[in-house]
Design a protein around this nucleic acid. Sequence first.
DNA 1: CCCATTTGACCGCC
DNA 2: GGCGGTCAAATGGG
Length: 300
Amino acid sequence: MELSWPESVLSNRERVMEELIQGRELASQLCRVLDDHKSTLVSGCGGGDIGSAEGLVNKILGSFANTLLILNGNEADGEIVSGDQIQGNSSGGGSADSSSWDANHAIIKSEDFHEEISCKSPSTIKDRRGSYKRRRTSHSWTRDTQDLIDDGHAWRKYGQKVIHNAKHPRNYFRCTHKFDQSCQATKHVQKILDDPPVFRTTYYGNHTCRDYLKASELKEVIIKEEKLQPSDDHMMASHHHNHSSSCDYIVSPHPTAFKSSCPLSGLSSTIDPYDHEGDVMSGLIVEPYYFDDEVLQYEF
DNA sequence: CCCATTTGACCGCC
DNA sequence: GGCGGTCAAATGGG
């Protein structure tokens, strides 16, 4: 994307970004305040107002996210989402946390793109195993947590690999909706520290899937998740999929529903669908947000 | 029987 | 050639 920014805009771009990020953070705080109010209210009393206020906050957050996206040059990638979409499109690609995207890597180089779509003749191979392209150009972000926490999306484990010079294997997950909705989101989870246990989750791509899970189903899932106490390496798989058979598609139909999973990790709720799993408040987070190469590093 | 996980094979990139 | 990411057959659980 060759967006030519006017000189003045370029010089102010960083400042604009800062302002937007601050604004977004303020909106997040507002949402938390709303959430606190909501928790003190008995359900049914004025919940509607709170709910609509939350919707507004979500739209505000969405606007911030989109603006940041545009500034980062992601517009052409079609990642921009409407405030309404924000509600159903959460953690994986993090529209609400879009500022943390690696904008430089979000842009697919044309040559890579051609590689991606060109069909490499599989005639000489027995099957299609391993026929993939490394997603070096896709945006990624990493998160370290002390617990494995559900990020509200449905993940399906598709591989596990022993990584060189790493004590623990890396687990590979893709979005459950990869095939039915062509959702390209994937993530890797790896235990990087034993004591205390630290799990590094690296997300790739955005969730383009829509969330179909009914609220009641989600509730059920959350209850199940709360009962689960992950303990070791293989919980990586079991944790993410303990709900697998009965609740295949775990996703967040609405940010509030998403937030409701926050207690899982003992977090105070936040509108940011990433923060909810970040364990930022619960203590351990090692790094806030960082990306595979360099570029942006925001602390919210 | 269906579906998710496991695990070894396969393949691209460095 | 090694490493890491993905695929898909085999396996197991519900």
